[in-house]
Design a protein around this nucleic acid. Structure first.
Lengths: 201, 201, 201, 201
DNA sequence: CATGAATGAGGATTCATTCAT
DNA sequence: AATGAATGAATCCTCATTCAT
């Protein structure tokens, strides 16, 4: 994105810094008030730059969002891959699941608000949707491969990993917001872990 | 909602019809282009009424959305409750899960787009979020009770039902849109069924 | 006003009653929230009639205002004329001024809010302005005649009466609202009386 | 006013110029067609700017009016204070009154239409009313002080000055519009002058 | 006569984006 | 590269007035 026409592809250090400030500001503002609750002037203000220059680095408001999304994806995948790609063989499934669950919750705690904003947009923005789809695919394929590499073979690996990912995500989401009073989230956490572990037993 | 001040509480048949036309139009337009992509003029046009009258029946655009949400919730819960509240005892868990999965998929096929719009808004609108939360609670509690009544006792019933609901929802969502080419959704469906059934074994 | 086209000139008792109810409602609502703060639906509601029928009796919203204005003028002039047209000869100027001042204040106490609304409109509505002009002329001429009839002759009678009227009106207005804390309105009242009396000495 | 949130506090010359153009346009348009007869688009058009930028400098339409009011108050008070604060002692009351009356009429000739608009609003807008009240107080107190400083002592100074101000204002208003054909305004002017002078004899 | 549902033009305001400096 | 003033289309909502019943 942001490469046609008069959009600057910043090479100089100061430029890169400015662009990053804008992305960081977008991250913050989008998190707080959502995409539609944000205006570019606010992003510029938080970034400490002028409104005009924003359009020097980004095609439009959506382009900022897309960049924020990219950063977000890197942020959330990195720690997970760190775990799954440094597995000792043979895999201790229970331990693995536990550490992944812990990590996903931790990530969610830090990014839940932006996650909300981003997911909202996926519903109406094909570009965002596509990136999320790709993200899911990436996670699924990469983790599947890691597991297979460690000797954890099984039929329908993709489907299982994907299901685990889905479960974990919806669980983490609720968990972080402590959404329902009548739910015992500690118990639920245990159930989630055992269900996921069960998939790969 | 929509009961204070100058909002018409429709009594006459013509009124009720008009209100319903507007809700139906909202349903359609919100589904198609999302909440922020919709303007009231468009809703009025689709409903075949003037822009003014929309505000005779609804406080504002959001109020329409809230009414659509209410209808949506009724639409999706009714068939599920029909199944879970007419169970023969002892329960055939596998058959039950299968029929519920079938039903949820069917509902999703018919309402997926609106579902998207609505869920998007939950992220930024507390009223919508609250209704969804209540919906989840309602489903969880009601189904838990039905199962218990049929002798299907188990520890952490709420948590299990809730997890099942979450799984099913995220699955149905993907399934309907056939989101990922590399996923064998038939296989995934089986796995989902067996996981859910496993919860209540 | 209200005589061309399809406007009903009510003859039947019930009709007259309805028309009067609307005027009374206009009086009340215009007083409270001003002309621009009022909508016809509100007037109809206060009058206890439907919005539609208002246009059976009045050409438009302004027409209601004009009728209210007419009533207002009758209300405020009647008690003044009662005093000035029942004078004993020779006139006790001081007593006359005192009783007129008392009466004007009393009238103002009861009608100050509507007075405000009406005067506001005179600035932008020629019809209202014309009626106020006529009102002033009427009062001036009629009182001048009364005074002359009682032997109170003087040069520039019209101008003096007019000035007295103006003074009295602006005074009464302030007095009723007790507008300025730093003003001793009792003292001011005395000064006003003596100034007016001085005019006719 | 106009200092919170995103209202520009103009620093650059271009900004100040634009803001002044808008105020001037407001002055003109409000004068001509009144507050309710004006729309922001018209003000922008007369100012030669876009509708959007109006909201860069003013919170809303009323805020423009308030600024216009402020200018108006400065415009009308300045020449009066110039007279009353440069009095030679002992004061020639008749000459003073004459020059003030002349000045007030002159001011009114130039601002009568806006005066109408502004006074209209005082009836329904507390902010406007408050500013007018303050204006009256200011004039009263300041002129009273000037007179006292020049040895023109008298009981109830405030009340007298206030009355004089009121008389003068209502007189000037009629005079400028030559409201009543049957009034000899030259004669009335003399009477006004002598009444006011009489107050301070 | 009466109802109140329906109309639709009009108006205030916002905000993504452009442009002069 | 940067600024921030300026643009103007777009949108929500109101309300005087009309009309079908």
């Amino acid at each position: 994105m942001s490469s046609t026409g008069k959009i600057r592809e910043p090479k100089q250090e100061r430029s890169i810094e400015t662009k990053n400030k804008i992305i960081a500001a977008g991250y913050e503002v989008f998190s707080t008030v959502g995409y539609y609750g944000t205006n570019t002037a606010e992003i510029a203000k938080v970034a400490g730059v002028s409104t005009g220059i924003v359009y020097g680095y980004f095609r439009d408001k959506r382009d900022i969002l897309l960049c924020v999304l990219k950063i977000y994806i890197e942020t959330i995948t990195k720690p997970i891959y760190e775990i799954t790609e440094n597995l000792a063989s043979p895999v201790d499934v229970n331990a693995l699941v536990k550490s992944v669950v812990d990590e996903v919750i931790k990530i969610h705690e830090e990014n839940a608000r932006l996650h909300n904003t981003l997911h909202s947009l996926a519903a109406s923005d094909d570009g965002v949707e596509a990136q999320f789809s790709e993200l899911e695919k990436d996670i699924t394929v990469r983790i599947s491969k890691s597991l297979t590499d460690c000797g954890l073979n099984s039929e329908h690996m993709f489907e299982k990993v994907h299901l685990a990912m889905n479960m974990l995500q919806s669980f983490a989401h609720e968990y972080v917001f402590d959404k329902h009073q009548y739910i015992d989230y500690a118990a639920m956490r245990k159930t989630v872990c055992s269900m996921i572990a069960g998939l790969f037993a």
